[in-house]
Amino acid sequence: MPIVKFILSRTWIWSWVAAAGAFMMVMALTQGRGASELAYAALSFGAFAAIVGLGQMLVITLGPGNVDLSIPATMTLAGTLALKTMGSDPNTAILGFTVAIGVGILAGMMNFALIYLLRLPPIIATLAASLIFQSIAIWSNRGLRIKPPEGLADFATGRTFGLPNVALVGLGLSILVWIVLERTVFGRWLLAAGQNLRAARLAGIPVEFVRATTYITVAVFASIAGFFLSSFSGGAALNMGQEYLLTSIAVVVIGGTSIAGGMSNVPGVWGASLFMFLVVSMLNSYGLGAGVRMMLTGTIIIGIVIAASTRRTRA
């Protein structure tokens, strides 16, 4: 059956299967109660992971060694500065959003400047930059606990057509990324640079422009996630980005994007983001302690990576 073959040949299908599996496991325990609530929560929390995951995916697509470790710091900085600017005043949501985007653009430019001008490996460059972003966030956040403006908080926690607004934002960004990757010249450039940087450069592709744009995009995505996350959770906190460093890389790999670069997978990032949330709620609902939960999460991630690699070698 060609349809089945087509579906099975998509690498993103596995992350969705895994997410559905985790969903079923929770439902088996609750005998089907709370299905819509769980799906709603998964979409809300998964959206943040998906947004930062999309950015990380673009960077990883650039090829081996490319990864952004400054995502958590950028999220925190964007959330902190945006909330500080808005100062809980109503009707300042647009202003705050602009500040967040500005932080993202500056952070991305700083990262790329270190990579390009100082020839630093991206891991070290984004790591060093993240220390500086963190300091700025600590300095500007001192003892402040500013609530987001009411309208913005309502938007971040609210829903439209039964879907969480943050999930709709994430969906919009995903469609944008998908169109850019699959239907534009820039997307082709990005994939070409990821597959073979030297060949891409010799073919006349402005690879440094592509890399700069990608590093700025990941920082802007992190800022958007940070902006909505701080509005969603009633204020910015210095550790709010922490868990997204691991999450952003994990969802990219589980979603079927090649860690060797040159191949992106947008739907997979969503499947993996939902899966990451659902696994935690599954382990939670089975009443496991924090330690066991972490251990199983790690084992599952490694298991999926091994499964994906054996599939790759067979194909």
Partner: peptide, 12 residues
């Protein structure tokens, strides 16, 4: 990625 996963295991 593997060491990232292992960091969860060790932490747990």
């Amino acid at each position: 990625v593997v060491t990232l996963g292992m960091s969860f295991v060790w932490g747990g």
